[in-house]
Write a protein that binds this DNA or RNA. Structure first.
Lengths: 151, 151
DNA sequence: TATTGTTATACTCTATAACTATA
DNA sequence: TATAGTTATAGAGTATAACAATA
């Protein structure tokens, strides 16, 4: 064992930093999400992509990628994975054969019913931890305000 | 130009998700930090490491790495970089020659005076965006509560 | 046997350039 | 010329296994 001569490390300098704490919290929440969705083998970016395609059927890859802040080159393999799993479909667009229109398949719609239920429970846990609906709204508003730093 | 037939994409499904907004905000804040520290060529992890070594001189690499949530194998090159830049020193420890004791060099101390000033200004911008000191405290408390999700 | 620092390695995520087919 | 999807590639960040020196 031997607890050494070491007492606890002084972390005040970093725990006082908003960016540091923001990152630690974000990593924790994403890991929790990944754990919760392990049976579905779904990452956060997969869920976001599926949700956006469901709510915006027929949109181009580039449009969905841009909204998510993902480079279109990197979005290819993400959509490719969902396509290979039969959750998403790339259809030809009449009028412009350069772009693919994205749609959920029937299996994708079915999967989303399960995934939305999982996500709703996960979100409820986050809201509860924050202290309730009102606090969660305040929290999201503060995250929005941080998006203005450095403009 | 041709604005297409496309109206705006419906992002409600993702913008309502705490984890999604948390990630977008974290990426934004880190990018802002990187921009602000561009002249110093310093990443967030570099600053955190320097601050922890300054406040905990003589600690082992493994101890500092653990506090930061960084695997000791990956911490080697991080400390190596700071060492190569002359900001950090690895000294032998009498009693146990397996471990290195970490210290800031004189140059490291001098650099930290500049970096702390930069960081204080950056932090002040974040606090101002959040609405003030009281709101910033509330925000950090909420981030802490999120660390309890999935336990 | 266990610990510390290290190396090697692989996997994910991200960023840029360039190709192709279309327009 | 410009755009959409794609490929290739390189760079971070992160994860595990294994080694040498030391305890």
């Amino acid at each position: 064992m031997a607890q050494d001569e070491s007492d606890a490390i002084d972390t005040a300098a970093v725990t006082g930093i908003i960016g540091y704490r923001l990152r630690r919290a974000q990593l924790h929440i994403f890991q929790s999400f990944i754990d919760r969705f392990a049976d579905e083998d779904l990452r956060p970016a997969d869920y976001s992509t599926l949700a956006l395609i469901r709510d915006n059927p027929g949109r181009k890859q580039t449009e969905i990628a841009a909204v998510l802040g993902i480079k279109r080159a990197n979005f290819v393999s993400l959509v490719g994975g969902l396509d290979a799993r039969g959750l998403v479909e790339r259809r030809a667009r009449d009028g412009d054969r350069r772009s693919h229109a994205l749609y959920l398949t029937a299996a994708g719609e079915a999967a989303m019913r399960r995934l939305d239920a999982l996500q709703a429970r996960f979100e409820a846990d986050c809201v509860a931890r924050l202290g309730g609906e009102a606090e969660a709204r305040d929290f999201l508003a503060m995250l929005d305000r941080l998006m203005g730093v450095g403009r």
